[in-house]
Design a protein around this nucleic acid. Structure first.
Lengths: 113, 113
DNA sequence: CAAGGTGCATCAGTGACATAATACAGCGCG
DNA sequence: CGCGCTGTATTATGTCACTGATGCACCTTG
């Protein structure tokens, strides 16, 4: 049967993204080192590095070799915008279809807030 | 960068589940044979069989050896209920948190219907 | 310079996934 | 019965994402 568990590096990636957006890792500040974060999360440093890499590629964090990775100014808002766009374009459409198929009314769900 | 492509057998499984709920494969009727469906989808018969297996295990389809797999009566509603429950319990909570973080107002999305 | 911290490149191992080639057991129909 | 269709069990192979261990280059600090 196997399973389909979300890869660790993606979980970490989402977790970090949320932290950046919410200001836990404020702009201009340093991200936890790959080793520190790995130890904290019980993961492998390389796996953490893989999660960090995407932010670096997107220009959301800057690497100072031998020092660490810093959150770029405007990263939080930039990240929020791109994630928002991704969500609306990719996930929401099929999500809406699926909810309709399951007989779920989105407006009803908001009442339980 | 790798990918994160959903396994084929899970895609097929979702596709079939949707078809059952929507009545494309009506109750009492026969599902496409593993070979036929495999040829149609460009997949391997074994992969299709793997997708079918879950429905069989959940008692949603019945196997008549040498004949084919039939959709059990009440399968559509049963499937809808279980999927609905899954969605509300597992996906929606974190989805709600995530939407809030991204500054997305669910009510706004309904306007685009 | 020496020590300890950073990220990162390289190589390797593991397991899920998909495909393939057969073979078998059961059923329907001519 | 014989043919063709069902699902399924078996075995094998190949691929690839994921994870991990090791070592290196770079920086800061004392």
């Amino acid at each position: 049967m196997t399973q389909q568990s979300r890869p660790v590096y993606l979980k970490l990636r989402d977790q970090i993204a949320a932290a950046i957006i919410e200001g836990v890792y404020a702009e201009g500040e340093m991200l936890p080192s790959v080793r520190a974060f790995a130890a904290e999360q019980g993961a492998n440093p390389l796996t953490v590095a893989k999660a960090y890499q995407q932010f670096q590629a997107d220009g959301l964090v800057e690497v100072q070799r031998g020092v660490g990775m810093y959150v770029v100014r405007g990263a939080a808002e930039k990240l929020r915008r791109s994630e928002r766009e991704q969500f609306l374009a990719r996930e929401w459409p099929e999500l809406k279809v699926r909810m309709k198929r399951l007989g779920i009314d989105p407006t009803e769900l908001l009442a339980h807030s």
